[in-house]
Design a protein around this nucleic acid. Structure first.
Length: 302
DNA sequence: CATGCCCCCTGCACGC
DNA sequence: TGCGTGCAGGGGGCAT
């Protein structure tokens, strides 16, 4: 699920409960997720204080007062749920579930696929639930954070000042791969996934089947396509974050005010629907690239 | 190095 | 109702 806007939304939801809180207790309910948990995982967390919670690409990074950083990846189906340990104390039903940007009431009980539970001094317990177990957690020293195996090869953050047409052109120069696959490559742009690549390409009016190399001129500079793409990626991500991300599954008790960017999709999941671009109306097509669905308008995306 | 394919895992929607 | 098939927001690993 979680692409950059969803992870950013989860970070925003978790940060108030996690930052400056002490980890009182950790329950690790299985030996591995996608990868084994690091050795002595529970012991290295319990008693530590969380200094701050950051997002990098699709990762969450909780900086600890031990000098280590807890890295968390949500994979496809990872979710965090925050519930108050003692609801009465906080004076509310007090139970908040953080799905991509959505806050819904959740039970305090352990349910299927709850793999990790953190109990914090801020009075909440935070559960990590991940049915498919493509997510994972790791602990790395702060000094090695930027170069560790998880973050070391990542490209620039698309919402940072370094993300510009000339950056894309440099990365794309001479590349024969599809523009779609190029943008999904986390070493190029860190945080895009299948949905937002489709949406950005439509907004930039670029075909997902173009060669990535067409973002660079023969001299290696940015083409007009590269500049359009930068603008479109920024715009779609900012709009999605403002909407609290996208939620593709239905939840019984959803706070409708959050996580509604799925209603703003122009192509994703809309095969056969008329293209909403001005004066277009051409039916949206679904094709498969790199083994994943691509939705696009073959008329206005060139 | 770049590229393409398979795989990890569970749940769900759909067709018969 | 039950069952098989295909597909899902990610990305590591391996062959070519």
């Amino acid at each position: 699920m979680p692409e950059l806007p969803e992870v950013e939304t989860v970070r925003n939801g978790l940060a108030p409960a996690m930052e400056n809180a002490q980890i009182l207790r950790v329950e690790q309910r299985r030996p591995d997720l996608r990868f084994p948990f690091p050795s002595r995982f529970v012991e290295r967390l319990q008693g530590r204080r969380i200094l701050r919670l950051e997002r990098r690409a699709k990762f969450l990074a909780a900086h600890l007062d031990s000098g280590e950083v807890l890295i968390m990846h949500l994979g496809m189906s990872g979710r965090f749920t925050v519930s108050s340990v003692e609801p009465a104390k906080l004076g509310a039903p007090g139970v908040v579930k953080i799905v991509p940007g959505q806050f819904v009431h959740a039970s305090n009980r352990i349910t299927a696929h709850d793999h990790v539970v953190f109990e914090l001094s801020s009075g909440v317990s935070i559960k990590f639930n991940d049915p498919r177990r493509f997510g994972y957690m790791d602990l790395v020293p702060l000094a090695e954070l930027a170069t560790c195996k998880h973050l070391g090869a990542l490209g620039v953050e698309p919402l940072s000042a370094e993300f510009r047409g000339d950056y894309l052109a440099t990365k794309a120069f001479g590349r024969k791969t599809d523009l779609k696959a190029f943008l999904l490559d986390q070493r190029v742009v860190a945080g895009l996934g299948n949905i937002y690549v489709c949406e950005a390409l439509h907004r930039a009016r670029l075909s997902p089947k173009l060669k990535a190399g067409s973002l660079a001129t023969k001299a290696g500079g940015p083409t007009q396509r590269a500049e359009r793409l930068v603008v479109a990626i920024r715009e779609v991500l900012l709009n999605a974050i403002a909407a609290g991300g996208s939620t593709l599954r239905d939840y019984a008790q959803v706070d409708g005010a959050l996580g509604y960017f799925q209603h703003s999709f122009r192509v994703y999941g809309r095969e056969g629907d008329p293209c909403v671009a001005d004066n277009c109306g051409h039916p949206i097509r679904r094709i498969v690239q790199s083994g994943r669905s691509t939705f696009y308008c073959s008329s206005c995306q060139r």
